[in-house]
Every structure is written in C-alpha cells, then in structure tokens.
Design a binder for these strands. Structure first.
Length: 332
DNA sequence: AAGGAGGAGCTTT
DNA sequence: AAAGCTCCTCCTT
C-alpha cells in the first residue's frame, strides 16, 4: 500500500513507515466527530469565504486517504475542504500554510506530474512537521517530555488521559496503572489490547507515533526544523521546562501567546493593556485541568483562582467590567 | 443559567 | 508556606 509518509525520506523511511501505519489505524478508529471543540472547522470555512485556494488540514486527516495525491484533485469539493481539524495545534495563519494548488492553474500534463511530485513532498514534510508540532504542544500542555521512555507512572497517566480525551476513547488509565514510559514502550500491540480490548490498539498506535517523533527529533531535528519552519520545535524557553509548577496566570499568558491554537477559547481584546477575554470558559478550564492533572477542574474553580489574583495585583477586572473579561495588571 | 465576588477549609508541592 | 483546589453563599447580568 502506498502511504504518504513512507517515501518521505530514505533516512527514516522504515521508522516512519511504522508510524504511518499507526496513523492510518488511528484514522480508522477515530470518531468522525471533531474530537476537540477548541478547534472547529470555522477557520477553514473562513478561509473558503476569503477565497483562499488552499487546503488547511492536519496530518491525521490527510492520512485518512490511501494516497496523498487526492489533494490535487479535491479543490473543487467544498465538502472535503471542511475537514475536521487537528485537535492540537494545526491551524496556522493562512500565509504560513503550505498551499497546494490545483489544476485550476491550468497546468500541462507533464507539469502536473512534476507538480504532483513536488506537492507530495510538500505534503509529506508537512505531515511530519505537524505531527512533531502537535506532540510538542501536547508536551507543553501536559508538562511531559516527548520521549516516552522518560515518563514516570504519572506522566503515563497524563498521556493516556490526554490521548483518550483527544480521540474520545473510553478511559483505560486503570489498565495501565503502575506502568512507566519504559514499560509502555516495551509493550507490544497485543499486550496493549490485552490491557484495553477497546482501545489498546489505538493507544499503541499513538505511542508509536510519539516514539517515532522522539526518534526523529534525535536523528534529524535540525533538518526538520528547517524544512518545516517550526523554529520553536522542542524549544526549551518555555515555562513548562523551568521546573517550577506553572502558575495559572502564566498558563493563560501561554494560551494567549498562541492565537492560532487557542484563539477560539481565549484571546486578547487589548494586548497592550493586557485585557483578554475567555471565549470558551469550559474549554480553558479543561486545558488548565489537563495541565495541572486536575480532571475535576471547571470554570467555577478556575475563576476563583483568577479572583485570588485580585488581591495579589496580578490580574484584575478591567475598568468596564465585562463577563469573562480580565486584565493583567502588568501587561508585557 | 452563567458568571462574579469572596470566605473558608483542604491539598499538593 | 504558597498556590491552588473545592465547596459554598449571595449577588448580578
């Protein structure tokens, strides 16, 4: 079977080939519903309304197909364009999105072949870039390392919770209790299935992708960083790497820093004055809960914590108080 | 119904 | 001890 990622690079062909099977398996198992309310199809639709002749898609969604070449043939199909987006962080600004042009450009047959090859390569490097980026985001959010072999039992549970949450899998954490990342990595797909008949294979596939990503990071992070333009990949300059537990206000700042990923749930109203609005309170609370490993987190509790900042002079209500709008006392 | 203010006791680090 | 978490009451939008 011809897979999009398989021929990506001879260097890590076999490794990625494995991950690629995992990705396809994931697609088969994934619910057709958008697994993450945070990133809806809205941006795609907006893009369409603007008449952008490009495709915005996630690596996972792309791999749904048997062959990435379909991308060259679907630009006249709006239904295909409204692809449910990747749950994590795939919606780049349009200008940063690789755009796959279609035959609308009136290419000659020969050129079409070349273009296809080029586009395919483009797509492939994008797939890898997106996967790495998604994992990086998950790591920051969960405060775990990308290398699964370094996970302790708590990290494993976090990862499980996260993956289950993303893909609406039944909770299987108990079946993997007491297991470290090393244990997990040593387990076969069959062993995964034994522990969790319902989603063991999916979890195993996901872990495989993480393993591949860690492998690739080690092997050719420089190349990939260049190729995908994601300079911040695996960067250390983040609060999640400082050792200290993250503060709520820092976490909110981080979300605000990434409007591409979180703009649908929290955004600046006035960045200069530090005024921001929580657009989706439940979602921000869920993210905070994930970050702090507090499954019972909700907006009621999160907002109580924000209100504690009033006395400390970190966050306040803006002069004209609005629902879900807060202001950093010391904007950067 | 959802959000906001703040008290109070508890937990985690 | 600090920083939240949790639960709660009362109030506002």
């Amino acid at each position: 079977m011809s897979h999009p990622v398989g021929s990506l690079s001879e260097e890590y062909g076999s490794r990625m080939g494995k991950a690629e099977d995992s990705l396809i398996l994931l697609e088969r198992n994934r619910s057709s519903e958008d697994p993450w309310e945070m990133v809806e199809t809205k941006p795609n639709i907006e893009a369409l309304e603007r008449g952008v002749p490009g495709l915005y898609f996630s690596c996972y969604d792309m791999l749904l197909t048997e062959d990435a070449r379909w991308l060259l043939k679907v630009s006249d199909s709006p239904a295909t364009l409204a692809i449910p987006t990747n749950p994590m962080e795939n919606l780049e600004a349009p200008e940063q999105c690789p755009i796959i042009d279609s035959q609308e450009q009136g290419l000659s047959p020969g050129l079409v072949g070349q273009e296809e090859e080029r586009s395919l390569e483009q797509v492939q490097s994008m797939v890898v870039g997106e996967v790495l980026k998604d994992i990086e985001t998950a790591c920051k959010l969960l405060n775990i390392t990308p290398d699964a072999t370094e996970w302790n039992t708590a990290n494993v549970q976090k990862w499980l919770l996260w993956t289950e949450h993303l893909y609406r899998l039944p909770h299987a954490g108990k079946a993997f209790q007491e297991l470290t990342g090393k244990d997990l990595c040593a387990m076969s797909e069959e062993e995964f299935r034994q522990r969790s008949p319902l989603c063991g294979d999916t979890l195993h596939a996901h872990l495989d992708i993480w393993k591949s990503a860690a492998w690739m990071k080690e092997r050719c992070s420089v190349v990939e960083t260049k190729a995908t333009g994601h300079e911040e990949l695996w960067s250390e300059a983040d609060s999640s790497c400082s050792g200290q537990p993250i503060h709520l206000w820092q976490f909110l700042r981080e979300l605000l820093l990434k409007p591409h990923s979180y703009g649908r749930c929290i955004r600046w109203l006035n960045k200069e004055k530090g005024i921001f609005k929580i657009e989706d309170s439940a979602h921000v609370a869920r993210l905070w809960g994930l970050r702090k490993n507090r499954p019972a987190m909700n907006y009621d509790k999160l907002s109580r914590s924000i209100r504690q900042y009033y006395k400390k002079g970190i966050i306040r209500k803006p002069d004209v108080s609005q629902r879900l709008v807060y202001q950093f006392v010391h904007p950067v």
